[in-house]
């Protein structure tokens, strides 16, 4: 079981409120991703749940029991750190067995559990090596192995893939997702990368300046961002925002349209000049300077034969226009 309930959780360092007060509930078995720009408080929130930091006020309940003041060891959670935090002086086997040894488990039970975890993570042939002799991806798997042997009620991941190169990251992302599907244990995953959030999460929590901007499923956030921040943060390339006359036509202070929702073709509403182009084969990205002076990004499928200096006409898909009021809130 791994249901985690945060009620008015607040954290301040001295005078500074890092987290002014958060309510959040995480259901058993859910894969929740905390996403936001650096300094938004997502790692602090994770450390509060882990018990590595004190909450200034509010309560954290794990499986219905108040855990706010419990030390990390007593919370039944496991954590995978950004730097992996493997014990460099212990073999892989000892690293994975460490939490079991701390729990006072018998040697034979320890060995059995380590074997099982190693098999799941393809680490069996590395068990007697030291962390220093492993590649980045293997170290990551050891860190995960150390977390899963304890059979915790929830896993906490603190930007675990940020030290890996791009290709490995994609692979590990899938491995973690598969692991979640087989274990069905609650996972809380912190990242600044919205692609990781979109591909892995059941539920995304978007954080900004210590506040929850929006909670929802990946597609929910993509289709129905509740404010400018979420609209701009989720989706790549970023959503285009237009203010002024164009927005006024839609009775809004700002309108947003995603690059993939702009159609190129004669008779478009907006005229402009192509600036930078990126031809990827599968997609083409264009930066277009509109005659009104604003710059928008366009994503077109396939290879589009447009180049620097060409004139284009663009039309937004009417149903995909997002409208925001002056305070940045989405209008229905």
């Amino acid at each position: 079981m791994g249901k985690i309930q945060l009620t008015q959780v607040r954290k301040s360092f001295g005078e500074v409120d890092v987290i002014p007060g958060i309510d959040l509930s995480i259901e058993d078995g859910e894969f929740v991703v905390f996403v936001g720009p650096s300094g938004c408080g997502k790692s602090t929130l994770l450390r509060l749940i882990a018990g590595l930091e004190d909450t200034t006020s509010g309560t954290i309940a794990i499986d219905g029991k108040d855990a706010t003041t419990l030390p990390p060891a007593k919370r039944g959670l496991a954590m995978v750190f950004q730097s992996y935090a493997l014990y460099p002086h212990m073999s892989v086997r000892k690293n994975i067995a460490f939490p079991l040894k701390m729990a006072g488990m018998s040697e034979s039970e320890q060995a059995a559990r380590v074997e099982r975890a190693a098999k799941v993570l393809n680490l069996t042939s590395y068990l007697d090596r030291r962390p220093g002799q492993l590649s980045g991806g293997q170290r990551q798997r050891v860190a995960i192995g150390r977390a899963i042997v304890r059979e915790p009620s929830a896993f906490l991941f603190d930007e675990p893939l940020s030290n890996l190169d791009a290709a490995l990251r994609v692979g590990m992302r899938q491995e973690i997702t598969e692991l979640h599907q087989s274990l069905k244990t609650t996972m809380i995953y912190v990242t600044h990368d919205q692609v990781e959030a979109m591909t892995m999460a059941d539920k995304i929590v978007v954080l900004n300046a210590g506040r929850v901007e929006q909670v929802g499923s990946p597609l929910d956030l993509y289709h129905h961002p509740q404010n400018l921040f979420v609209a701009g943060f989720i989706g790549s390339p970023k959503m285009n925002f237009l203010a002024g006359a164009e927005a006024a036509k839609h009775n809004a202070a700002t309108i947003g349209i995603r690059p993939e929702h702009l159609d190129i073709g004669a008779g478009g509403m907006w005229q402009g000049t192509v600036g930078l182009t990126e031809h990827l084969g599968s997609d083409t990205f264009l930066k277009v300077t509109l005659d009104s002076g604003e710059v928008v990004t366009v994503r077109a499928n396939g290879d589009v034969a447009l180049h620097h200096g060409d004139r284009v006409a663009l039309s937004p898909q009417a149903s995909k226009i997002h409208r925001f009021d002056a305070s940045g809130k989405a209008l229905a």
Binding site: L52, P72, A78, M79, A85, L86, Y87, M102, R150
Partner: peptide, 14 residues
């Protein structure tokens, strides 16, 4: 790195 000691704490070490 302090993270390693924190990892030990998470692993249940006194």
């Amino acid at each position: 790195p302090a993270e390693i000691l924190e990892a030990a704490r998470m692993d249940g070490a006194s």
